[in-house]
């Protein structure tokens, strides 16, 4: 029997705003399969986003959904999770939203290791505003604000998350659709702040400017550059040039923030007696 996505989609809220060929819908389907696999109750699941194309995702999901201000998803989500730790809290958003204007909230959520999963759809561009370069845009690439090529070096978002203290970091691509839900499931099951970066495509504002002939070419590129972590172990640095590692990149067990705060409450109540 075909998977029933409708169970998690808000009636009457489709079609979505995403362009033909955009990978965000693939990620949303992955997220839905993950939520289903985990057996989450919709009433007890909050999906929090910032601003941008990817951040429109919560509106389509039949959960407790919070479409916040640009860059602020991790901070709002921290408030939700702290106030109601029993809720499943998932952040979604894009590369610019999460790592430029929201960079401070993102790295500090990583540092606290609060039990939230943050899914970053990295399409290397600000799509909603028409294709300005983001902190993930490759050096030299064309964007509406880099007409002579991008002089900025990009972030490696997964490395940024690991460096900031996230205790689970994974990367997938919109091409590898069937891997997305598995990565998200593992990320959510991990106790602590987990980041899933999904390399995505924006044919409308990135592909067009950077001489991609079609969405298929962009998707094929995602297929070609992705190297699973296991396979990369057997490859030489020469062979790995221009490739991107996918799968679970980092995992460690560390005290989780809301659990640590529960201990603060115990200590405070003990002291009050």
């Amino acid at each position: 029997m075909a998977f029933d996505y409708d169970k998690y989609i808000r009636p009457g809220k489709l079609p979505h705003i995403w362009c033909p060929g955009c990978g965000h819908g693939i990620v949303m389907k992955g997220l839905i399969r993950a939520i289903d696999a985990l057996g989450f109750e919709k009433n007890n699941t909050a999906i929090v986003s910032g601003i941008g194309c990817a951040s429109r995702l919560p509106g389509y999901m039949d959960c407790c959904t919070l479409h916040t201000a640009h860059g602020r998803a991790a901070a709002f989500a921290t408030g939700v999770k702290m106030a109601k730790p029993e809720m499943n809290v998932i952040c979604v958003g894009g590369d610019g939203d999460g790592t430029a204007i929201g960079g401070n909230h993102f790295i500090h959520a990583c540092r606290r290791n609060i039990n939230i999963t943050y899914i970053i759809m990295n399409n290397k561009i600000y799509g909603m505003t028409g294709g300005q370069f983001s902190p993930a845009t490759p050096t030299g690439a064309k964007a509406s604000t880099t007409p002579y090529g991008n002089p900025d070096p990009p972030f490696d978002i997964a490395k940024l998350a690991i460096g900031a203290g996230a205790t689970f970091v994974a990367r997938g691509t919109a091409y590898h659709a069937t891997q997305i839900d598995k990565l998200i499931v593992e990320a959510i099951q991990h106790k602590g702040f987990s980041v899933v970066e999904i390399l995505d495509d924006c044919p409308t504002t990135y592909g067009r400017r950077n001489k991609y002939k079609s969405v298929i070419e962009m998707m094929n590129e995602l297929k070609d550059i992705a190297v699973p972590v296991k396979a990369a172990e057997k490859m030489t640095p020469e062979q790995l040039k221009g490739k991107v590692l996918t799968g679970v990149l980092y995992k460690e067990e560390k005290p989780e923030y809301t659990a640590e705060y529960a201990k603060v409450i115990e200590r405070a109540k003990g002291a009050a007696k």
């Binding site: 602020r72 901070a75 709002f76 921290t78 408030g79 909230h105 705060y261």
Partner: peptide
């Protein structure tokens, strides 16, 4: 915490206001 409430010092003022609305 004595009354089971939650206190968090956020990374900046915007984050603090955001967490307040979330909570």
């Amino acid at each position: 915490p004595k009354v089971g409430g939650k206190f968090i010092q956020m990374e900046d003022e915007i984050g603090a206001m955001s967490a307040v609305i979330g909570a």
